[in-house]
Each structure stands twice: as C-alpha cells, then as structure tokens.
Amino acid sequence: MYSGKIGHLMLGICSRKTTGVCGVAQNLAGRSGLSWTAVCKQRTLWQRKSACPELQQQHVPTYLTSARSASNTTVDPNELKRFQSLANKWWDEQGEFGALHAMNDLRVPFIRDNLLNAHRRSRQVGKPLAGLRILDVGCGGGLLSEPLGRLGADVLGIDPVTDSISTARLHLSHDPDLCERVCYRDCTLEELSEEAEAEQSAGGFDAIVASEVVEHLLNLETFAFSCSQVLKPGGSLFITTINKTNLSYALAIVVAEQLLRIVPTGTHDWEKFVSPVELESLLESYGFSVQSVQGTLYNPLSGSWSWTDSTSITYALHAVKQREEPLLDLGGDSGPQPDHRAHSAATHN
C-alpha cells in the first residue's frame, strides 16, 4: 500500500517540472493532514533545534574553512553504527538496499560513458574500462565495485564499516576472475589520502566514485581535499546524492520516514544534504571543474531510476580534477591567468 502511494507520487513527479513537483508534494501533504506550509515550518523548527548555538550567528560557508579544521574526519559515529547494523543486508535486493541495486542501471553507464569520453584509446572487447584505476568511497558491500570491475577496471573499495567490507569480500570470493580486479579495505578516505601523502604517491586513481555517500559524511571539506590528493590530474569524480530543498526534506524525511514509514526514522539528516551549487563551489575550491549535473528520480512502484531535468530531489555530478598549471615564464608575459574554476550554474535546475 505504501509503495503504491509513493509510486504514484513519483510518477507524478516524472511528468512535471520543478514547480509541478512541489505541487504534487503539497497535495500529498494535504491528503495526509499536513499542509505544505506546515512541512516547511516543521523543517525550519527541526533545523533550529538541531543547530549549535554558534550557528545562530552570521553563517559562514563551511567550505571557506580549512579541510584540516576542527573535524578532519569524514566519519560520523552515528552513521557508522547505523550501517554496522545493516552490514549483512547489502546483497538483499528486496531489503533496505534495494534502491541501490536498482541505481546501478543508471550510475554504472553514467560512470562508464564519462570515463570513455575522457580516455579515448583502444578498448578490450567486453572490458571498456580496462587499465583504469577506480576508488569506490563508501563501497558498503561492493554493490558498485563489482559491476565496475566487470567492465575491466581495477577497483579499490573502501569503507570504515569493517563488517560491510567482510560482506563485500565474501560476495567477491564467489567470482575468482573478479578477484583479480577488485579488492577492499576497511579504512577511510582521509586515511588513504594520508598514506598517499606519506609515500609521496598522491594522484594514483583515474576516477573516484562516491555514490549515496556525501549525505552521510561528517566533513565535506575533508572529503574534497582527500579526493584531490588521491586522484590523478584530469581524473574524474562521480557523486550521487540528495539535494537540500524543501521538497527533498518533505519526501526523504516527512513522507518516507514520518508518514509512510518505508524508511527507518533517522536514516536521513537534512542538515547533511547539499545542493548542486554548494557542492560545485566546494569542489572548485579544491581544484575540480564540474562538468555536468543531472537530476535523478527513483520510482518505488517500478523499482527503477530515471534521469530528469530537475535536480530538486536527487542528482548525479561529474567533476574533473584540473591539471596542474604550467610554471610561469618569469622572463615573459605574466599577465592575468584564466580562472579555471569558473563554471556556469545554469545546469542546476
């Protein structure tokens, strides 16, 4: 019954622009005895209640501070406990991670096609990503690592939840051929970055994937900094996540958690959601150039994902680490250099 309700909601969303999406959510809230105004007020009260006293003062964007600030870890202990309790359920396609299994139909081609456009060279039949090294951050049980490995890439999946890595390794062991291209480590991204820095081997990966991860991290600045450390110049960063809008709050928290109870209460923290514009600004401050941002949509009725023009709920982002600037010729013209961080926000609908 609940999946039917949410499915009809999503079907309505698919056929509307952003303003139409808001209208559908408003109608659902109204039928549930909760007005759209009440939803927005509830979000505001929740936001104020959870905010620290210091944040009541004038707000300074966190990405303007150093990645080595008060919190230099990406791991939230509460998130760690939550995923620890779900570690043995990663490969249950009908369970809590069913939507992530379905998302492979969207995110794997998104990663593959962008990498093929960036690396134009001879390809092995059936293994178009052969020769590329990919880091899967927050790999969980390996739901995305394995498909990328089957495309020929050498994949390292990392996750701070030890039991999730154990699940990933156990599932991988059933495919001996894949074991040659995919491996897992129970560590954090910042630990990997520090190792690379100590070994002076920064920039070892052709691509980094962080799918449905950044909305669970404690510190996005550390995440962006660490990505820039372990990614090759010209390498790609792929992110899928949830936008920070009234609509995403209504659907991900009010509808999914509070009204329909199809997602366990506390799964999402709206404060950790990030908009495409904010994420782009953060990444560009750490040397990335955002190439594309595309809205995504999940339909629980059909159990499938699709692309959409609106990024108001969830979205996929592709960014590229800028190549190092050539040294200036001190004897020649040292006029103004182009700003490689400039990028239009017109793609953010």
Results as ranks from 00 to 15, higher is better:
Asp339Glu: 06
Ser302Gln: 14
Leu283Lys: 03
Ile242Gln: 01
Gly131Ala: 10
Glu325Phe: 05
Thr162Leu: 15
Glu54Leu: 04
Asn219Cys: 15
His119Leu: 00
Leu259Gln: 07
Val60Cys: 15
Ala25Gly: 08
Gly126Trp: 05
Val60Asn: 12
Gln56Trp: 11
Ala168Pro: 03
Gln337Ala: 13
Leu34Pro: 01
Leu217Cys: 09
Leu116Met: 12
Ser122Leu: 10
Val320Gly: 01
Leu34His: 08
Leu11Phe: 15
Gly157Tyr: 11
Ala51Tyr: 07
Thr347Gln: 15
Leu116Asp: 02
Ser292Asp: 12
Met103Pro: 00
Leu282Met: 14
Gly335Lys: 04
Gln84Ile: 00
Pro336His: 13
Leu170Met: 11
Phe223Trp: 14
Phe83Ser: 08
Leu100Val: 11
Thr241Glu: 00
Asp339Lys: 05
Phe273Ser: 05
Ser236Gln: 10
Glu212Met: 04
Val21Lys: 14
Arg48Gln: 09
Ala202Leu: 08
Arg120Gly: 00
Leu129Pro: 00
Ala51Glu: 13
Lys81Met: 07
Leu283Met: 07
Asp136Gly: 04
Ala168Leu: 06
Leu106Gly: 06
Tyr249Gly: 01
Lys244His: 10
Thr265Phe: 10
Asp333Glu: 09
Thr240Tyr: 06
Tyr286Ala: 01
Ala102Ile: 11
Leu279Thr: 07
Asp206Met: 06
Ile165Asp: 02
Pro336Ser: 13
Phe223Lys: 03
Pro77Ile: 12
Val155Tyr: 01
Arg323Trp: 05
Gln94Gly: 03
Gly141His: 03
Glu215His: 06
Ala51Pro: 03
Asn72Leu: 09
Trp90Thr: 08
Leu115Val: 00
Asn114Arg: 15
Asp92Cys: 11
Gln294Ile: 06
Glu96Met: 07
Leu260Trp: 07
Ser15Ala: 13
Lys89Pro: 00
Trp307Met: 09
Asn349Tyr: 12
Thr73Val: 13
Glu284Cys: 14
Asn117Tyr: 12
Asn88Asp: 12
His268Val: 09
Trp305Gly: 10
Gly140Ala: 04
Gln56Val: 02
Glu180Leu: 12
Gly295Val: 03
Gly266His: 09
Phe97Gln: 02
Ala256Lys: 08
Pro233Ile: 06
Thr314Gly: 11
Gly332Asp: 10
Leu317Tyr: 12
Cys14Val: 10
Val21Arg: 15
Tyr315Asn: 01
Gly33His: 03
Ala342Glu: 10
Asp159Thr: 05
His174Ile: 05
Val161Glu: 09
Val21Gln: 11
Phe238Thr: 02
Glu194Ser: 14
Asp333Cys: 10
Asn114Gly: 12
Glu278Ser: 15
Asp105Leu: 15
Gly331His: 15
Ala224Pro: 00
Ile253Ser: 04
Gln337Asn: 05
Pro264Ala: 02
His348Lys: 05
Phe288Thr: 09
Glu195Leu: 15
Arg68Glu: 14
Val255Glu: 07
Met10Leu: 07
Asn117Met: 13
Gly234Phe: 07
Tyr286Asp: 00
Pro338Asn: 03
Leu132Arg: 11
Ala210Tyr: 02
Glu212Trp: 03
Pro300Arg: 07
Ser285Leu: 06
Asp333Val: 06
Asp154Leu: 07
